[in-house]
Each structure stands twice: as structure tokens, then as C-alpha cells.
Computed example of a mutant assay.
Amino acid sequence: MIHFVLLISRQGKVRLTKWYSPYPQKERTKVIRELSGLILPRGPKLCNFVEWRGFKVVYRRYASLYFCMCINQDDNELEILEIIHHYVEILDRYFGSVCELDLIFNFHKAYYILDELLIAGELQESSKKTVARHIAAQDSLVETAKEQASSLSNIIAEATK
């Protein structure tokens, strides 16, 4: 089971967090600080698994972002590396070569994509096409809602003249 997902920049700024196990806010801050100090200084030739507090943290660096997932001791690290890569590929497909700024300005989309992949800390959908289809449907619903809100506000503006 995945306990939490963190996306951290090389400077130590948190870009995305998703918690699947209950952690109080104070503990979350402490975890992020601890893991940033543990993972960021590691060299590129070191392995992508770190034992931490009785768990394993699996991470992978893509450009300026570290994608980290905390798992149980007996879970498969290579499977988690694949899940991280799968998530990055879907982000790349959606944003067209995803970068840190895409995640900063469109964090809600990054969360939505993550929610399509993982539910309760377990891989839910392994098909990139299915995830892309769900995201496209979500985007179309948002556009329809914006159009309806715009036309409704035009009707109200006309009626109040």
C-alpha cells in the first residue's frame, strides 16, 4: 500500500502531496522536512529506495522534480517505480512535456490524474488511454459548465437592464 505521494522540487518546495494514511498536520510537515533532507542530497548514482521509519520511500527524479511514494517494508519497490513512471507519462501526455510550472499552475489537474490512477493507496487504473479518456471527459464537463455559467450571467445581465 502507498501511504503518501510527494512531489518535491530540487529546492525542497512541495508541489503536490497526497496522503492515503492518516497523519496529523504537524506530522505531515515533519515528514516532508525529513524526507526532503534525506532524498534531495542523494547522488544520482545511488539507488532510488530509502528505508525510513519502518517504511520504504521509493523516489525518482524527473527534470527538477522528485516523485516520492512511501510504501510498506514488504511491498515491491520496482512496481512503485513503474507507478511513478506511469504517472509521469500520463502527465506528459496531458500537458505535452510536463514541467514544474504545469504542476504549479494546474495542480488541480495533477491531483485529478493522480486520483484516476490511485485509490486508497492502490493502483486502480493501469491503462493510459482510459485515464486520458476520463480526463478529456472531465475537461469537457468543465467547459460545458463554464459556457452555461457564462450564458446564465448574460441572461441575468440582460434581465437587469
Score class of each variant (00 low, 15 high):
30 K>P: 07
26 K>A: 13
48 N>Y: 01
100 E>I: 11
160 T>W: 04
24 P>F: 00
116 E>N: 14
42 R>N: 07
48 N>R: 08
52 W>A: 02
112 Y>C: 09
94 Y>A: 07
88 V>E: 04
55 F>W: 01
75 D>C: 10
91 L>Q: 01
23 Y>D: 02
123 L>S: 03
23 Y>T: 05
83 I>S: 02
59 Y>N: 02
90 I>S: 02
41 P>R: 02
138 Q>A: 05
122 E>K: 13
118 L>D: 11
74 D>I: 06
78 L>E: 12
20 Y>D: 11
62 Y>K: 05
128 K>Q: 00
156 I>Q: 10
57 V>S: 00
139 D>I: 04
34 E>A: 12
90 I>T: 04
141 L>Y: 06
97 S>K: 11
85 H>P: 00
110 A>F: 08
91 L>M: 10
101 L>T: 11
12 G>H: 00
39 I>N: 07
46 L>P: 00
13 K>D: 14
20 Y>A: 14
99 C>L: 14
78 L>H: 11
104 I>Y: 13
160 T>L: 07
115 D>K: 15
142 V>W: 12
128 K>P: 00
29 T>A: 15
135 I>P: 06
85 H>E: 09
56 K>N: 09
109 K>G: 04
66 Y>L: 09
4 F>H: 08
64 S>G: 05
93 R>E: 03
75 D>Q: 09
130 T>Q: 12
119 I>Q: 13
62 Y>D: 08
18 K>H: 14
137 A>G: 07
120 A>S: 15
153 S>P: 12
44 P>E: 07
117 L>H: 12
120 A>H: 14
31 V>E: 02
110 A>P: 06
95 F>D: 12
121 G>H: 08
22 P>H: 04
86 H>N: 01
83 I>E: 02
139 D>A: 08
26 K>E: 15
145 A>M: 14
157 A>M: 07
121 G>T: 08
62 Y>W: 07
150 S>E: 14
61 R>G: 01
9 S>W: 06
82 E>I: 07
46 L>I: 03
46 L>C: 05
69 M>S: 13
80 I>K: 10
40 L>C: 05
124 Q>R: 12
45 K>T: 13
36 S>N: 10
25 Q>T: 14
90 I>M: 01
126 S>N: 05
18 K>D: 11
134 H>C: 01
17 T>R: 11
87 Y>G: 02
121 G>W: 11
3 H>V: 02
68 C>Y: 10
